[in-house]
Design a binder for these strands. Structure first.
Lengths: 120, 120
DNA sequence: TGTATACTGAACTATATGGTTCAGTATCTC
DNA sequence: GAGATACTGAACCATATAGTTCAGTATACA
């Protein structure tokens, strides 16, 4: 399960680490699109775009369906909620750490004032 | 500026796409740690861990400071707020798309009932 | 002073990534 | 049926990634 979740995040964050793929997600957020439309939008060969779509599909962020000649791409049912949760949990830890650090700094400043030392 | 932001996300999402690096961030969320402690925790050579820390540092997620022999790693001042915002905006688009789809499905179901057809 | 510790950097390996071209196959459309 | 369109797959290329080993340097400590 942990293993599963890990590779899950590997795939989704990996998918998000490329600007073309983030762009594709934004575009599909506005409207479904074929591989060739996406390829044209991002100035890339069909084959190149197909690979990107494949990566997004692997990550569960996009689904595709081929009807006739055309493969239509749309946003997948998985919508980054777990990734959002991971980041939120991290941000929690992060802000705790910095609150702590700020307290230490505040404490030092307070002591400086008490002992009448100059502030930098 | 857009260019800057893009590579920014490339680096941070790329950093998050590796399970070791996500683990390092979680550990540093609990306490600062040296390279060797991190290397031991994640069963890796010092050199290997140093590379991971370098990636996290490049992404602005970790800062390090060397005192004597020891390089101490801690969470960086940048805390994934922009990444959280990107994901939230995406989730917005995503849920709009699916609300829309759900409306279409509801509409179809409604018509089916009106015309007295069997439900699957 | 000598030894152990902690890191650093270069070099090497294997595999993955992001892209291409080229040669197909399948599907429209006239 | 012929030609155009849309995709697919294999092969190739350059570069990046994730790791290693090995040979240092710098610091701590007895």
């Amino acid at each position: 399960m942990v293993q599963y979740l890990q590779s899950h995040f590997d795939a989704s964050f990996g998918a998000l680490s490329d600007p073309t793929r983030r762009g594709v997600l934004e575009q599909l957020g506005r409207a479904d699109a074929s591989i060739s439309v996406l390829a044209e939008t991002f100035h890339m060969t069909l084959t190149g775009m197909k690979k990107h779509v494949g990566v997004l599909e692997q990550a569960g962020l996009v689904t595709t369906e081929k009807v006739g000649r055309v493969r239509t791409c749309r946003l997948g049912r998985r919508g980054l909620q777990e990734e959002a949760a991971w980041i939120e949990r991290y941000r929690q830890l992060w802000s705790e750490r910095f609150d702590e650090l700020d307290n230490v700094v505040d404490e030092l400043n307070r002591k400086e004032r008490v002992h009448g030392r100059k502030k930098r």
